[in-house]
Simulated scan of single mutants.
Amino acid sequence: MMRAVSAAEIAPTTYPWAVHAEKLVVRAGRHVAVNGLDLALNTGVHGLLGPNGAGKTTLMRALATVVEPAGGRLSLLGDDLTGRADPRRVRRNLGYLPQHFGFYPRFTVREFVEYMAWLKEMPKTVIPGAVQRAVERVGLADRADSRMKTLSGGMLRRVGIAQALVNDPQVLLLDEPTVGLDPEQRMGFRDLLRELGMDSCVLVSTHLVEDVAVACTDVVLIHEGRLVWQGSTAELARQGTAADAGDSATERGYSALLRAYRGQVSG
């Protein structure tokens, strides 16, 4: 006799926070790049902003389990990643596009994304369909069988996005994803971000404040490895005045918050 399955058994796993950091410390070599950071993120598209050297890439690498925290606590999808935790289970539910990613030039687009799906331990039976869907979502279906070495810089970036989302990750980390994309491709990518953020926790590190204003539900601003401010894009736009640097309300809000933070530190 078949046993009845309850709704609780088939319901998706939920977590208090998809990403949760407490007093997080991460080193980049001998330098402390993330210094006592507190952060909590859930479903939605979150923009990660900050000047050069703020610690954005190091934070993304820690969230992607590439580097281990040097202090504090970090959990992803309910799994504690500090101490001697095994990150493999978390990695199956992660997608990560680093600022610079390596690839085999002779691989085709399809072969490369398939290879990354295999590294993420996806079941063999679902890989072909998942790869095709990922390639289509980034607008490269017509180049799926082209070798990586023949692609433009913008196309390579889109392949990087495809490999990051091939496993339908619950946490998606994108470090400067729009580098090399033309304006039309950037607009399409913003639409894709909004779609992904409906079911996943998406963190996008970028220098393009306008991308954050259009595509993100909220903003995380860091400087010198510390959290400066976190809030909605609408709240960010209200932080600045006409006297602050920037061509839009969002950029002026960004400038105002950095100026205020630096004033507090120097004072």
Score class of each variant (00 low, 15 high):
A4W: 07
A4M: 09
A8H: 03
A11T: 08
A18N: 08
E22V: 15
L24C: 05
V26A: 00
R27Y: 14
G29K: 11
H31V: 14
H31N: 06
G36S: 10
L39K: 06
N42F: 13
T43N: 04
T43I: 15
T43V: 15
G44H: 07
G47N: 04
G47E: 01
L49I: 10
L49P: 00
P51T: 08
G53W: 04
K56R: 10
M60R: 02
A62C: 11
V66N: 01
E68P: 02
P69A: 09
G71V: 06
S75P: 00
G78Y: 09
G78I: 09
L81G: 00
G83D: 01
P87I: 09
V90Y: 04
R92N: 00
R92K: 12
L97I: 05
L97M: 14
F103P: 02
F103I: 05
R106D: 08
T108I: 07
V109M: 07
R110V: 06
E111D: 10
E111C: 11
F112L: 14
V113Q: 02
V113A: 03
Y115I: 05
M116D: 01
A117F: 06
W118C: 09
K120D: 03
T125S: 08
T125W: 11
V126H: 02
G129N: 04
A130G: 02
V131C: 04
Q132S: 12
E136Q: 13
E136C: 10
R137V: 09
D142M: 13
D142P: 00
S146C: 07
T150W: 03
R157T: 04
R158H: 08
I161C: 03
I161V: 15
A164K: 03
D168H: 12
D175I: 06
E176S: 09
E176Q: 11
T178S: 15
G180H: 05
P183I: 14
M187Q: 11
F189W: 09
R190A: 13
E195I: 13
L196P: 01
L196I: 05
M198R: 15
C201D: 01
C201N: 03
S205H: 02
D211G: 08
C216R: 01
T217H: 15
V220E: 00
I222F: 08
I222V: 15
R226A: 13
V228E: 01
W229T: 10
Q239N: 07
A245W: 10
G246N: 05
S248N: 06
A249D: 09
T250G: 04
R252N: 01
G253W: 11
G253Y: 09
S255W: 09
S255R: 13
A256V: 14
L257A: 05
L257H: 07
L258N: 04
L258Q: 06
A260P: 02
A260I: 13
Y261V: 08
V265Y: 02
V265W: 05
G267W: 11
